[in-house]
Design a protein around this nucleic acid. Structure first.
Length: 257
DNA sequence: ATGGCTACGATCCGTAGA
C-alpha cells in the first residue's frame, strides 16, 4: 500500500497537478491539506473519475482536509472528538484495514502569539486523540502537514531558524510526544540524503536555493512501521509552473501477508 | 533590510501562510 500526504494550497488551483500526480504516482491513500474550499466546491467527480473515493472536511478560504482512497473509505470522522474547533484540520477514515488520520496542524504564526498557544493546545488534543485511536487501531497512519521541523537536520538554516515558530522547543516537544505514543516518523526509518525538505518558501527563490523545511510527515504505528519499505519526498510537483509550496511525501508498505 | 510570493475574498488592499 502506498500512503501519501500533500498540502496542495488550494484544491481549485492545484487540481490539474493533483490529477497528474495521482495518475503518475498511483497512491492507494492520499491525505490532502489546505483545500481552501468548502465541500460543495470540492472536485469530487473529477477525483472519482480518476478512481478515488473522497472523504472531505472543507472550509472556505482557509484549512480544509481530505482523504482520497483507491479502496472504499469507512468510519469517516472529521475533527478531533472532544476538541471543538471551527477550523477544519483533521479527518480520519479506515481503508483496507489501515486507520488513516489526515492532519493540517496549525502554523502558529510566531512564538508567543495567540496562534502559537492554539497550536500547542491543538497538539495536546491531537496527542490524546491519537492515543485513543492507537488503542482501537494497531494499524494507524497519521499523515499531513505538521508545521514542525522535528530536528535541525530538517531545517535548511538552523541558525537562522533557531527559536522560531516550526522549530521552537515546545513545538518539537509536542512532536516528540506524538512519537512517544509509539509512532514512527516513516522518513527516518531509512537512510536518507541530506537536506531533504517538504516545504520551500515561495519568496526568495526558496526552492531553487533548497531553502526549505521538512514539516510534512507520515507517522506510522509499530505494526505499520514494520511493513514500511520506503519513504521520501517527491519534489517533482514543486518544479512545475504555479506549484504548491509543499511537495508530496510518500511511504510504501509491504503488502499484508 | 523583517521585505521578498501565493491564494483568497474582498476590492485594487488586508489576511494568512511558514
Amino acid at each position: 500500500m502506498k500512503l501519501a500526504t500533500w498540502n496542495v494550497n488550494s484544491i481549485k488551483v492545484r487540481l490539474p497537478q493533483l490529477l497528474e500526480w495521482l495518475s503518475a504516482s498511483r497512491p492507494d491513500v492520499l491525505c490532502l491539506q489546505e483545500l481552501k474550499a468548502e465541500e460543495t466546491k470540492f472536485p469530487r467527480s473529477d477525483l472519482e473519475a480518476a478512481g478515488y473515493a473522497c472523504a472531505v472536511s472543507g472550509q472556505k478560504t482557509y484549512n480544509g482536509v481530505a482523504i482520497l482512497s483507491r479502496g472504499p473509505l469507512a468510519d469517516v470522522v472529521a475533527g478531533v472528538p472532544g476538541f471543538p474547533d471551527e477550523q477544519r484540520r483533521v479527518i480520519a477514515a479506515t481503508v483496507q484495514g489501515v486507520r488513516a488520520v489526515c492532519v493540517y496542524c496549525p502554523n502558529g504564526q510566531a512564538v508567543g502569539s495567540d496562534k502559537y498557544d492554539y497550536k500547542l493546545r491543538w497538539f495536546a488534543a491531537l496527542r490524546e486523540y491519537l492515543a485513543a485511536e492507537l488503542k482501537k487501531h494497531p494499524r494507524l497512519a497519521v499523515a499531513g502537514d505538521f508545521n514542525v521541523a522535528p530536528e535541525d537536520r530538517d531545517v535548511h538554516d538552523p541558525k537562522a531558524w533557531e527559536g522560531q515558530v516550526h522549530v521552537s522547543e515546545p513545538e518539537r516537544a509536542a512532536w516528540r510526544a506524538l512519537l512517544a505514543l509509539g509512532l514512527k516518523d516513516s522518513f527516518r526509518l531509512f537512510e536518507q540524503p541530506e537536506k531533504v525538505y517538504s516545504w520551500w518558501d515561495y519568496r526568495m527563490m526558496g526552492f531553487r536555493r533548497n531553502a526549505g523545511l521538512r514539516i510534512d510527515h507520515i507517522l506510522l504505528s509499530h505494526e505499520l512501521a514494520q511493513d514500511c519499505i520506503s519513504s521520501g519526498v517527491d519534489k517533482a510537483p514543486r518544479k512545475l509552473e504555479r506549484p504548491s509550496d509543499h511537495a508530496p511525501v510518500v511511504a510504501a508498505l509491504r503488502a499484508e501477508p
